[in-house]
């Protein structure tokens, strides 16, 4: 996902990827606009987390876990709950990932996935209030990479959305300033859903869902979050310093609009919860 254009890749490999693209082929035989196999499993951390999911795109795999805590609202939004998405490029997933505090690429990953969910107003934060100004639910969705073979952003977006959709948590109420459970179970109020679709620019070619080898030779990538109304709710050009022409941005947008539908369907089927 990150900018591995600086990572070492042999000239032979680089040329191999480029030559194939020129012939209309990709390293793993896919069409330019074809995703690898996608699989989502939910409730993989059923005992301890309120919601969880593992999303796999080809050999890229991430796990998402949701914790729902009770806390105080931010002073400027007393009648809104809190959502937060974080991501860790754990070294377990790739020899390219290092131990230590998160680097720029990990920060970008988390922020881009968070923006996709936040800007689409997927989670109805007004529905996460226990007592306005006093207590609200705080929804933390944390992502850990398990295996990395390119396109972490899309995998993280799938896992985060699936985990949020499948989350069930105990309803709380305020009694004499004490937070006590009511014994009922709630779902996170979700009004919208935006999935992220990443298109990689390699020379003049645009390919969807790049594998690691393609990421290493890409000029840049464009990630787009598309919601239920086919609106773009987030976009990020990253993964390299190459520029991109407006015409290619438009092409990438068409690809994202088309792919978003299928990605949404995978999430709905895996979670058994349908939005919109």
């Amino acid at each position: 996902m990150g900018d591995f254009s600086a990572e070492t890749i042999s000239h032979i490999d680089r040329k191999y990827v480029q030559d194939l693209l020129a012939k209309g082929e990709r390293v793993d035989g896919r069409a330019f606009d074809e995703y690898r196999d996608i699989e989502i499993q939910v409730d993989v951390v059923a005992a301890k987390s309120e919601g969880s999911a593992i999303a796999r795109i080809g050999d890229t795999r991430v796990i998402a876990g949701v914790k729902v805590l009770v806390g105080e609202p931010y002073p400027d939004t007393p009648d809104e709950g809190v959502t937060m998405i974080t991501a860790e490029m754990a070294p377990i997933a790739s020899p390219l990932f290092e131990v230590g505090p998160p680097k720029e690429d990990a920060i970008e990953l988390a922020r881009v996935v968070d923006r996709g969910v936040r800007e689409s107003e997927s989670v109805d934060v007004k529905g996460l209030v226990i007592e306005p100004g006093k207590k609200v639910y705080m929804v933390f969705c944390d992502l850990y990479t398990l295996e990395y073979d390119g396109n972490l952003i899309d995998a993280c977006s799938l896992a985060a959305n699936a985990a949020l959709l499948s989350t069930k948590f105990a309803e709380m109420k305020l009694e004499d300033d004490e937070v006590v459970p009511t014994g009922r179970e709630l779902e996170i109020p979700i009004k919208n859903l935006a999935v992220e679709c990443t298109v990689s620019k390699i020379g003049e070619h645009l390919v969807v869902d790049p594998v690691l080898k393609e990421e290493m030779v890409q000029d840049c990538r464009l990630t787009m979050a598309v919601d239920l109304n086919d609106h773009f709710t987030a976009m990020q050009k990253g993964g390299g310093t190459g520029p991109i022409a407006l015409k290619q941005v438009e092409e990438a947008m068409d690809i994202a609009l088309e792919k978003a539908q299928a990605l949404r369907e995978v999430i709905f089927e895996a979670t058994g919860r349908r939005i919109g």
Binding site: L222, M224, D230, H231, F232, T233, M235
Partner: peptide, 9 residues
């Protein structure tokens, strides 16, 4: 190129 909010194509 970055974007947030909600836009049609």
């Amino acid at each position: 190129l970055q974007q947030d909010g909600s836009f049609t194509k």
